[in-house]
Design a protein around this nucleic acid. Structure first.
Length: 269
DNA sequence: TAGAAATGTTTAG
DNA sequence: TAAACCTTTCTAT
């Protein structure tokens, strides 16, 4: 479930549960064995997210995790379950109140120990992240405005904008009635300003809720409960279903190797 | 049991 | 532009 909101949520959770105390780090699967050995028993300073990257700082050594398409963390309290499947990295700690806490990582594209300069190198190639305080949406616009590439592709480019993935891309374009095929240079500056502001709101709600909901304000969605699950999106994964606004069938097509969803009428240009 | 799909990125050609 | 890779889960045979 990893777009930027997932990583920011994890960063907060890990900091709250593990930071300031020693963490037992292991790699039952073995693929992170060397890293686990280096970090085991050391104190976590804090976990931080930038875009879709998660960094756990243990002094000068930083665990860098990128979940890729299907990486997940599972977290719980008490005694951790017997390791099964490909359990890449496990953290066990004492928790803020002394009760046991643990978190398990599986399926990640990246799980490695980096030095501070290596972390900086990753951050240097990321565009602004709507979930970080002080992020400058204008920096993204400067890239968009001088490009002939379709906005649908630009929004997925992490060096333009960090943290947006396939769901936020589809939903943001629909909410602003922008065709994914429109060239970047044809996006007006005030149009982008509204899209950026909207992203900040949507992604913050995503962090709070733990999932992406773009059809209903987050507070209302929470009251509606699980019933709202079915209509959390306008177009994402709704191929062939009627557009929630105009009734036209939602279309899908591949763009830069990913499935793109849009309403050909609401997002005509 | 096999196959496909999934909220992603990197590398090879 | 295509393929590789990381793993789980759900569907079809």
């Amino acid at each position: 479930m990893p777009e930027g909101h997932t990583l920011h949520r994890l960063a907060r959770q890990q900091t709250a549960l593990f930071a300031g105390r020693p963490v037992r780090v292991s790699s039952p699967q073995g693929r992170f064995a060397a890293g686990a050995e280096l970090l085991d028993g050391r104190v976590l300073d804090r976990s931080t997210a930038y875009g879709k990257h998660l960094f756990g700082a243990f002094g000068g050594d930083v665990v860098h995790v990128h979940l890729g398409l299907y990486g997940t963390f599972t977290t719980g309290t008490g005694v951790p379950p017997d390791p099964k499947g490909a359990l890449r990295m496990r953290w066990e700690g004492d928790g803020p109140d002394g009760a046991g806490v643990w978190t398990d990582l599986r399926g990640a594209t990246a799980c490695e120990v980096l030095t501070r300069p290596e972390v900086t190198a990753i951050l240097d190639r990321l565009g602004p992240d709507p979930l970080r305080r002080g992020a400058d949406g204008g920096r993204a616009y400067r890239r968009i405005a001088k490009s002939r590439t379709p906005v649908g592709a630009l929004l997925m480019d992490q060096s333009v904008l960090a943290g947006v993935g396939n769901v936020y891309r589809a939903e943001l374009l629909f909410r602003h009635r922008v065709s994914p095929f429109r060239p970047g240079h044809a996006l007006a500056e005030d149009e982008w300003a509204r899209m950026w502001a909207d992203l900040v709101v949507l992604m913050r709600a995503g962090v709070k809720l733990g999932r992406i909901v773009t059809t209903v304000p987050a507070d209302r969605e929470r009251r509606r409960g699980p019933a709202a699950l079915a209509d959390a999106h306008y177009v994402y994964r709704r191929t062939g279903l009627p557009c929630r606004v105009c009734g036209t069938e939602v279309r899908t097509e591949e763009m830069v190797g990913r499935n793109l969803y849009w309403c050909p009428v609401c997002q005509a240009v």
